[in-house]
Amino acid sequence: MPKTPDPRTPMNAPAAPDATALNPAIVAKAAEWMARLWSEDARAEDKAACAQWRAAHPDHERAWQELQIFEDKLDGLPPELAHHVLREPADQAWQKRTTLRRLFGLAIVAGGAASLLHSTDTWQLGTADYATATGEIREIWLADGTSIVLATATRIDVRFDAQERRIVLHAGEILITTAPDPASVHRPFRVHGRHGRIEALGTRFSVRQDESASQVAVFEGAVELRSRRIPDLAIRISAGEGSHYSATRIAPLTPVQESAAAWRNGVLLAENMRVADFVAELARYRPGLLRCDPAVAELRVSGVFSLRDTDRALQNLALALPLVPVYRTRYWVTLQAS
């Protein structure tokens, strides 16, 4: 019997080439759009913006249709099997989000979907031990009493064993306040990331990981930093100091202030900050695209701005400087001269 065509696909659409040719970044964006539309607060403007993105390039629509096929497979599962796939550990409340449960189920049920979703932020958000969504700030407590505050879009795994207490930072930023090891045999507390390893020496410190480099800031105690490709070189960083580092280089130490951890309280403390830098930092805490016109990029701003309500932060910025936020959609905002 001929297969009934999918009503979501135009009848004259050309046959899609092998899905492996899709750019992973496009698949990631398609997953983000699907997650956004699955959320309880999705609006009509979100649907319109998604439709605009899908129409912008054939590959956008291809990626969307691939994920849509996986969703259909999940929806067709027997209830008892779907429940098994989507069950959530009781001690991980973040998995209760419907969006993440469905994406997690899609990847498992579809088989081939894993290769498409595994590299996306949405997939990794659902599979990390602890994670935060864009704009979310969350504190967790580990079994040894250590406190970790996760900034926006952060993913970590916790690996405690008889030899060490290890935190694997996959993306984002964390603020750690270590506790004494309750084990009878001392286990060092270490943070492993893309660019190196940090060992805490009884301390409070933050680590932020970006694509090309990471940065550490120490507020109490000290840490020992080793870059990934030069593991024999250890740099001690004491309270009030910080450093940027990559897999092959550790930059000279620079002073850091307590204000560098202000994000923990949901605020961005700007001190004579370029608008371009302000926008880059605020953009980490809101979905979509936030940018500024070059005409206002070099303006300077000082003040305290909310990271939990980024629209309010933009409004307050417009009150302080001669600029205005122009909203093309909820997820596409440009700061321009007023």
Rank of each mutant, 00 (worst) to 15 (best):
V324N: 10
A131G: 03
S259T: 13
A183I: 02
L175G: 00
R62N: 13
E241P: 07
A28C: 11
L335V: 08
R155F: 00
E61N: 11
M273V: 07
P79M: 05
A16D: 07
R43H: 10
A19Y: 08
A313G: 00
W94Q: 15
D309T: 01
F160Y: 14
W64N: 10
A143E: 10
D309Y: 07
S184P: 07
I137G: 01
N12I: 05
E136W: 09
A261F: 00
P79S: 11
A13V: 01
A200T: 02
C292K: 01
M11H: 12
F305L: 11
V218I: 08
M11G: 08
R308M: 11
T254C: 03
L321A: 07
I156P: 01
D75L: 15
A222N: 00
L106K: 14
G193A: 08
A213W: 07
E164W: 07
A262W: 05
L74C: 15
L233N: 12
A82D: 14
A90E: 13
E173M: 09
P78D: 13
A35L: 15
A337I: 08
A35I: 10
V109R: 06
V109E: 11
G105V: 04
D18P: 02
P287W: 02
W64A: 09
Q68V: 05
H244V: 10
T154F: 00
P58T: 10
R204P: 04
R194D: 09
A217W: 01
V218D: 03
A297H: 08
T310A: 11
V158S: 11
I140K: 01
A297M: 07
R190C: 13
A262C: 10
R197M: 14
M11Y: 04
A114W: 09
S147P: 06
A276C: 07
L319N: 11
A283N: 05
S214T: 02
L321V: 09
V218Q: 06
R138P: 01
W141Q: 15
R36T: 12
F305R: 06
L233P: 01
R165Q: 04
S302D: 10
Y130L: 12
T20Y: 04
Y331H: 15
E40Y: 05
G112L: 05
G240F: 03
V333E: 00
A179Y: 02
V158N: 13
A44C: 09
V333P: 02
R330K: 14
E241S: 12
V333Y: 03
I108V: 15
A297S: 15
E298C: 07
A320L: 14
R197C: 15
R187V: 05
T98C: 04
G266S: 02
A280Q: 07
A30M: 07
N23I: 10
R291S: 06
V275M: 02
H60A: 08
G145R: 05
